[in-house]
């Protein structure tokens, strides 16, 4: 389905995750962040860039993996994206919701 985000029609799934990454822009990310009550800072964008890069390299994302990365620890991840940080951050990043749960 399509949803208007930051003035553009964007394809999303029923949970609001982008289905076509080429439609992602920083403005789209910012608008999704606002919907989740998050004001983006340069640090937020660093984490988003890291997640997008991991996704591009086909790395399955999980809280545990992020905790073991040198980019940030889990505490900070929660401070930046409260509640479910992996779910919220991947939505802002325009990448699929991690399927780490089986």
């Amino acid at each position: 389905m399509e949803k208007e985000i930051a003035g553009k029609m964007i394809s999303v799934n029923n949970e609001g995750y982008l289905t076509n990454f080429s439609q992602w822009t920083k403005e789209v990310g910012e608008a999704i962040a606002l919907e989740n009550h998050i004001i983006m800072t340069p640090r937020h964008w660093e984490v988003i860039a890291y997640l997008q890069n991991e996704h591009k390299n086909n790395v399955a994302l999980s809280i545990r993996k992020i905790g073991k990365s040198d980019v940030l620890d889990i505490k900070e991840f929660y401070a930046l994206f409260p509640q479910g940080p992996l779910k919220t951050s991947t939505k802002i990043a325009g990448i699929p919701k991690p399927a780490s749960c089986i």
């Binding site: 809280i63 889990i74 505490k75 509640q83 479910g84 940080p85």
Partner: peptide, 20 residues
């Protein structure tokens, strides 16, 4: 739901998640 445990506090008998 969405509870990512960080620690078990044995004295207070609570579990704590990364979000506090």
């Amino acid at each position: 739901a969405d509870f990512a445990i960080e620690s078990v506090d044995n004295d207070k008998k609570v579990i704590v998640d990364y979000g506090g």
